[in-house]
């Protein structure tokens, strides 16, 4: 079954003279349990695709289907139980005056869970933080620990599809390895599907099965990671990216 299908997606900002077409005619699909990568330089529209899927970019046309259900501009409650997003910068995506307990507790409550206390403990264990971080504030956590909290928050509603927007680009390489390992473990444990945006080809190569290369808002090539590993990309731009990242 297809977890996510995107057909002829266009996303734009502004109108009239100031209109910017951020994504143009993007189509791809992601199977259940797959890990799919989106790569490209900044401004190529890769993050915008994720934002359009979650509803953070209001102006879009085309077709987005999650678990076979087409998504309209108004998203039902169940959508947010299925799809969750982890943002790039863990320093900006956590409320500075909310403790970890509040961040997770509030999310759980919004999703209508009753056994919040037990779930917060479980979530913290899942992301390898444990009890002692429960009542800390973001400023008391390192970058890697914050990103773990952000991942725990995304896991709270027990989603099937996780959208990862450059989850490690703000972190050191040593911490990046920890987070990537954690994401790989969580995927097998919870049977998750990932769509991961990154500008780092080797990170996408490590995490994903297939990837799409984007340039100027268009998907120029969709290829298997094996093809990428053997440096067999077809489109000249993908080749250029490959060369730059070796």
């Amino acid at each position: 079954m297809k977890m996510l299908e995107v057909q002829d997606l266009n996303v734009w900002f502004g109108g009239g003279r100031d209109r910017v077409d951020a994504v143009k005619h993007a189509s791809f699909d992601v199977a259940q349990g797959e890990s799919f990568g989106l790569v490209g330089e900044s401004g190529s529209g890769k993050s915008t695709i994720l934002r359009a899927i979650t509803g953070l970019a209001p102006d879009w046309s085309g077709k987005i289907m999650v678990e076979g259900q087409a998504i309209g501009h108004k998203r039902p409650r169940t959508f947010f139980k299925t799809v969750q997003m982890v943002f790039q910068d863990p320093y900006a995506s956590l409320h500075p005056r909310h403790s970890v307990d509040q961040v997770l507790g509030e999310t759980l409550q919004l999703h209508g869970f009753k056994d919040i206390d037990a779930r917060v403990v479980k979530l913290l264990d899942d992301v390898g933080l444990g009890q002692k971080f429960r009542f800390r504030y973001p400023h008391q956590l390192s970058g890697g620990q914050r990103q773990r909290v952000a991942i725990a928050r995304a896991l709270a509603p027990e989603p099937d599809l996780l959208l990862l927007d450059e989850p490690t680009s703000a972190l050191d390489v040593s911490v990046q390895a920890e987070i990537l390992n954690l994401l790989a473990d969580l995927r097998t444990e919870h049977n998750l599907t990932y769509v991961m945006v990154s500008h780092d080809l080797s990170v996408v190569g490590h995490m994903c099965d297939r990837l799409a290369v984007m340039k100027d808002g268009e998907i120029v090539e969709v290829l298997d990671v094996d093809v990428l590993r053997h440096l067999n990309a077809e489109h000249p731009y993908s080749r250029q990216l490959l060369e730059a990242s070796l």
Partner: peptide
Amino acid sequence: SLPRLDAPRD
């Protein structure tokens, strides 16, 4: 700790 394209690891 760096992922590498030419040497995939689990």
